[in-house]
Design a binder for these strands. Structure first.
Lengths: 211, 211
DNA sequence: CTACATTTGTGAAGCTTTTCACAAGCTTTC
DNA sequence: GAAAGCTTGTGAAAAGCTTCACAAATGTAG
């Protein structure tokens, strides 16, 4: 149980959990690795290998209990609890994220929003009032923020990341096109939309060359 | 030059290109694999190996010409041209993407927006008027759409993807939490924000267990 | 209770990606 | 023009990930 789990495994676990929740909605009671694989776009062997890193949850000849496996995966992924999340950057992307219903559904609670634009500070977004970026340390400390979403320009991201971590944030979701450097024990995931588009562009360009 | 290029390599190429563009801004003329590695969060050997799949662009003892390598990477990634992009879903995420300045900077031109909500259809977003989703085939055909961004609910995504591909879209950027099934020659990249948050949650939860 | 049909869990094999290490090549210096 | 100092490009080794294949376990039918 102590070996390092690869990123791709973690992503697949998320997929499995989503599939299981759909199955729960349909009142399915058991599911085989084969069925899970089909929904997640992978193979049965991969599903079993992924799960085997955390224990053995299935019954031979029968498959997995949907409810039990979903519960186990929630625990493994850490979404059997609430996470307090702060959002930095109340621009377009920030506001889209703020209203993103799926975050709340998985226990990610956006309890603070910060921005550097004085015109935005003080505005009320639902239950939250936008704070000035200078309040970052206070907000992170007082509201006991776990995770920080950075939806700020690239040149501001590194400085904010450092302040956030120093103030107690434990993980970062970074939308800026910058490779953040933080302590090794602070997980960072990057979402880079241009990069995703470029992946498409590359795939199509390569095809052209090949033909 | 014909071997399959891994996803991770493509992503790194994007990183390198961004770093090179920054260096161009500073009027740097050459850069070593070591310097590029530092900016991209990887190693010098990895940079050289990545580039070696496409030819040899450097000069031993000196490094790479910033301008030349940037040009080569733009060509390799296919961003030395314009791509016509349509956006389906004029909700929060859609509108954030529409105004995302970095897309335009890399040649991704959002030339159409579609939505199924009659209240939104006909609205004018800058140079674009929102079309009804029923117009999808006509819009894709007439405006010669290359890439389609799907910012729609999960249950609508598969059907729209199929229509888009049938109408001529060549690649898809999918924001819905659904594994799209399309022809093998249609590249799809998925952006799943909940999954990214869960990766953080997992990393932090695992740490807790370990200690 | 036995035979049969499933399906898991897992070592081993196969494949891919990353890292290593060094010869080859370019530039500069003396 | 030879020597020194870098830095690339690349086989080979190492590490990591996925697929295979099958024993073991469970449920079902007769």
């Amino acid at each position: 149980m102590s070996r390092r789990i690869s990123d791709s495994t973690v992503r697949r676990l998320s997929h499995y959990l989503r599939a299981l929740e759909e199955l729960e909605g349909r009142h399915a009671t058991t599911v085989s690795s084969d069925q899970l694989a089909a929904r997640g776009g992978t193979t049965a062997a991969q599903v079993r290998k992924d799960l085997s890193h955390f224990g053995s949850f299935g019954k031979r000849g029968l498959g997995y209990s949907v409810a039990e496996l979903a519960g186990r995966l929630r625990r493994i992924l850490g979404v059997d609890r609430h996470w307090k999340v702060a959002l930095v950057g109340a621009g377009r992307i920030g506001s889209a994220l703020f209203e993103y219903p799926d975050f709340a559904a998985r226990g990610f609670r956006l309890v603070a929003v910060l921005d550097r634009d004085p015109a935005k500070v003080g505005r009320v977004w639902g239950p939250v009032t936008i704070s000035d970026i200078s309040e970052l340390e206070r907000v992170v400390g007082e509201r006991d923020i776990d995770l920080m979403i950075l939806a700020v320009p690239g040149d501001a991201a590194q400085a904010i990341a450092e302040r956030a971590v120093a103030a107690g944030a434990r993980g970062l979701l970074n939308f800026a096109p910058t490779q953040l450097r933080v302590a090794d024990d602070v997980p960072v995931t990057n979402v880079n939309l241009v990069m995703e588009m470029e992946a498409l562009s590359f795939a199509l360009t390569k095809d052209q060359t090949a033909s």
